[in-house]
């Protein structure tokens, strides 16, 4: 099937590359809620390189983390007890195109709600309140974001993330290098490619928990409310997701999941993260 599809697409692509004209996409989206109900499956875009939120377990080949557990729980509440949650790996750069492509029904991947993004996707209510912070090697002279605002400072960020944009506001003098994903950004930090890595505190705490010679400094200098994204016009699905989150907050499931993943992390404020 895939081979056939590829062949068909080829012919179209050849013509398209020539015409060079950007006609806007026609909206042929089906109703995502109805489709997932029919398949009894909700397909989520999740991170696979982000400890605590979504990390590949190499042994079982499955992804584990807070976002995954949230996704599973919401699926059950949207589709019923037997509802099946499917997880597709995304990065900050690939998640919106994938949602727009219709490869996934919703994104639950440490995604901050921003006005710019809200123009292309619809967000649920906040399910995790993060804030941007810094990760540095222990013993580094950098104590907070102001220390980075000097010539010669280099900060590592991830392509397509809000932190890559924000850091240019908070430390305009620093040079920003954008890498493909968190794994790449952290390996780059370890290789001395930058003085600090910046992204949301929850993600950084996850990295620090596994790499004791690095720590999170300076506290949160932005608010990064995470939301679940669905494609525009998928209001029915969005409402169902909002309803599920509200239920989970009420019956203690949410609190339990938060405790499960972040309870043991030193320096992490559960109260702050659960703000609505």
């Amino acid at each position: 099937m895939k081979k056939l599809k590829a062949l068909l697409v080829l012919t179209g692509m050849l013509l398209l590359t020539l015409t060079l004209s950007a006609c806007s996409a026609e909206s042929t989206q089906q109703n995502a809620l109805k489709r997932s109900q029919a398949n009894n499956t909700l397909t989520w875009g999740v991170k696979a390189d982000t400890r605590l939120f979504g990390l590949m377990d190499i042994k079982s080949g499955t992804i584990k983390g807070f976002d995954i557990d949230m996704g599973k729980e919401i699926t059950k509440r949207v589709l019923g007890k037997k509802g099946h949650a499917k997880f597709v790996q995304v990065t900050s750069k690939t998640r919106i195109p994938l949602l727009k492509n219709g490869n996934i029904d919703a994104i639950i991947a440490t995604m901050t709600i921003t006005p710019d993004r809200a123009k292309v996707v619809d967000f649920s209510k906040v399910y995790f309140a993060a804030g941007q912070s810094l990760l540095v090697k222990k013993g580094s002279p950098i104590k907070d974001v102001r220390d980075l605002n000097k010539d010669g400072m280099t900060v590592l960020a991830v392509k397509g993330s809000t932190s890559a944009v924000n850091i240019q506001k908070y430390a305009p003098k620093a040079k920003v290098l954008e890498l493909e994903d968190y794994a790449q950004a952290f390996t780059a930090l370890k290789s001395g490619q930058g003085d600090a890595m910046t992204t949301d505190n929850g993600i950084l705490f996850g990295i620090a928990s596994e790499n004791p010679s690095y720590h999170v400094v300076g506290g949160a200098f932005t608010n990064e409310p995470y939301g679940i994204a669905v494609d525009k016009q998928q209001t029915q699905l969005k409402n169902k997701i909002d309803q599920a989150i509200a239920e989970m907050r009420k019956d203690g499931t949410y609190e339990h999941l938060l405790q499960k993943w972040f309870g043991g992390i030193a320096g992490f404020d559960l109260k702050e993260a659960s703000q609505q």
Binding site: L20, A22, S92, K93, I96, P97, V120, K159, G160, A164, V165, L177, E178, L179, A188, Q193
Partner: peptide, 24 residues
Amino acid sequence: AGFDLMYQGDTIASTTFDTFNTYI
């Protein structure tokens, strides 16, 4: 992060979401 043409285009595309035109 070599700041070549592809890197610059890629960062523009992933902040403006206008992937089609940027890559062209």
